[in-house]
Simulated assay, not measured.
Amino acid sequence: MTNYAIDDDGNTLIRTWAVGHGHLAAVVAAVPRAAPQALRLDLVAQLTGLSDALWRCYTHPASAAASTEPNTEGWRRQQTRDGFATVTDAVRKPHLVDEAGYLTVEYDPVQEYAHRVGRALHAIGDDALSAAVEADVAGEIGAVEHAELGDLTGRAVQAVVLSRTDASPAQVAAADAVLDKDPLGGSELFRELEPTAAAIAAAHWLKAAADVVAELSGIPAELVVASADAIEPLPYRTPTAVLGLFELADSPRSLVVEMVAEAMLVAEGLAPRDLAIDLGDEADDEDDDPAGDGSGDDPDPDEPDDLVRLTPLDPARPARDLLEDLLIGIHACRLLYTGYADDTISEEDQDIAFRTAVRARAAQDRGRVL
Rank of each mutant, 00 (worst) to 15 (best):
N3M: 07
Y4H: 07
A5Y: 09
D7R: 08
D8Y: 05
D9F: 11
W17A: 12
V19L: 03
H23Q: 15
V28M: 10
V31C: 01
R33L: 08
A34S: 05
A35R: 09
Q37Y: 04
A38T: 10
L41R: 11
D42G: 12
D42N: 14
L43T: 12
D52L: 03
L54T: 04
W55H: 10
C57W: 00
C57H: 05
C57P: 00
T59H: 09
T59K: 05
T59N: 03
P61E: 02
A62C: 04
E73P: 00
W75D: 10
Q78R: 14
G83F: 00
V87M: 03
T88P: 04
A90R: 06
V97P: 03
L103P: 01
T104Y: 07
V105G: 01
D108L: 07
P109Y: 01
Q111W: 00
Y113I: 00
A114T: 01
V117K: 07
G118I: 00
G118S: 02
A120W: 05
A123E: 14
A123W: 10
D126W: 08
D126T: 13
A132D: 07
E134M: 07
D136S: 11
A138E: 15
A138W: 07
G139I: 06
E140K: 06
E140N: 11
G142L: 03
A143Q: 10
E145V: 11
H146K: 15
D151Q: 14
T153W: 11
T153Q: 14
A156I: 06
V157E: 01
S163N: 09
D166Q: 11
S168V: 01
P169C: 08
A170E: 12
Q171L: 14
V172T: 13
D176H: 11
V178M: 06
G186K: 06
E188L: 11
E188S: 15
F190Q: 04
R191Y: 09
E192F: 09
P195F: 10
I200N: 09
A203N: 03
H204Q: 03
W205N: 04
L206G: 01
K207G: 09
D211P: 01
V213E: 01
L216H: 15
G218H: 08
V225Q: 04
A226E: 04
L234V: 13
Y236K: 11
T238F: 07
P239L: 12
T240W: 04
A241N: 13
A241Q: 14
F246I: 09
L248N: 02
L248C: 06
D250Q: 03
P252F: 04
P252L: 06
P252A: 06
L255V: 08
V256H: 07
E258S: 12
A263L: 05
M264N: 13
M264V: 12
L265Y: 12
V266F: 08
E268Q: 14
L275A: 14
A283G: 15
D285S: 15
D285I: 14
D285T: 15
E286L: 09
D287M: 15
D289V: 12
P299L: 09
P304G: 15
D305E: 15
D305Y: 13
D306M: 11
D306C: 12
L310Q: 10
T311P: 01
T311K: 07
L313N: 12
R317K: 07
P318A: 09
D325E: 08
H331W: 10
L335I: 00
Y337N: 02
E348I: 07
A353P: 10
R355A: 15
V358Q: 13
R361V: 13
L370D: 14
